[in-house]
Design a protein around this nucleic acid. Structure first.
Lengths: 145, 145
DNA sequence: AAAATAAAAGACTAAAAACTCTTTTATTTC
DNA sequence: GAAATAAAAGAGTTTTTAGTCTTTTATTTT
């Protein structure tokens, strides 16, 4: 709707991993998939990509898994979204016009400008690390049940 | 991004037809496709559907075509979007969670609530008819070139 | 009534997104 | 150094969305 399915899973996974790996622990792919209700092999692909892009970390072998180091913890969700879906949610025209600008705006240009701005603020205002706090306090959830 | 391609074309087409059919005239499918830069056969399908749903009108035969009557002119873009994409853009969770509510919110719930609200206001605040005025005044555009 | 016009309907194909399965590579533990 | 573990890589399949082509039906004009 706002994001691709891939991106939704990515966001949920990153928040999940950040929370689970707070004390330096690592999380296996199976645990991530179960923890965010996503298809296992699909989220594996997504995490591989995020790992390549240094947005999360991983290590192979026994006791290996995914984790998020201190540096990556300072990233925002906007970084994740940009990496997965590109910047269309921050920039693209709401009506899909290639040319849509201040000087040649679509009929919804001004309204969408505000919506995109709000989106950007929402995704940039808090770091990955900060999201954990609300999860830890039981103020928000990333799993259905 | 926010809407499906089908929905983007639908919105553009409805605005276009509303403008072109202001004086009781009708617009052929070819003119619509050219006017909003969309594939001809594809927009034909979309308009068929909108016509069935009474969001636009059509008539066959010579001098036939699509038009928007006075009653339909009072619809808003929200009606078009709901008809084509359903209400996910107004209701669904930003992270794709099936269960996401005030009592069990996702980490972005409150921010997205505002964004969806803004979206709804943007699409509901002006009727199809009202959009024409800004087009007629050259204040907005629905075509690239 | 025949010819012309234009949308409706139906049956497709193409491309993208979502998802799965198998094999390989790196790392650790015994 | 062999066995076990876990991610990386690669090569698929399935489903959905986007887009095309052909035939039919309704209406109008001559």
């Amino acid at each position: 709707m706002f994001f691709s399915k891939t991106c939704e899973y990515a966001i949920r996974a990153v928040i999940f991993i950040a929370q689970k790996s707070e004390g330096g622990k690592k999380v296996g792919i199976r645990e991530v998939a179960a923890g965010i209700d996503s298809p296992e092999h699909f989220i594996a692909k997504i995490l591989q990509d995020l790992s390549k892009r240094q947005l999360i970390q991983s290590s192979k072998g026994p006791n290996g898994g995914f984790y998020i180091g201190d540096a990556s913890r300072r990233h925002t969700l906007a970084d994740i979204v940009s990496a997965v879906d590109g910047d269309k949610v921050f920039k693209g025209c709401g009506l899909g016009l290639k040319i849509c600008s201040e000087t040649k705006p679509c009929p919804l240009h001004n309204q969408f400008k505000e919506i995109r701005k709000k989106m950007q603020v929402a995704l940039q205002s808090a770091t990955i690390g900060e999201f954990n706090e609300s999860l830890n306090l039981g103020l928000s959830y990333i799993k259905e049940r």
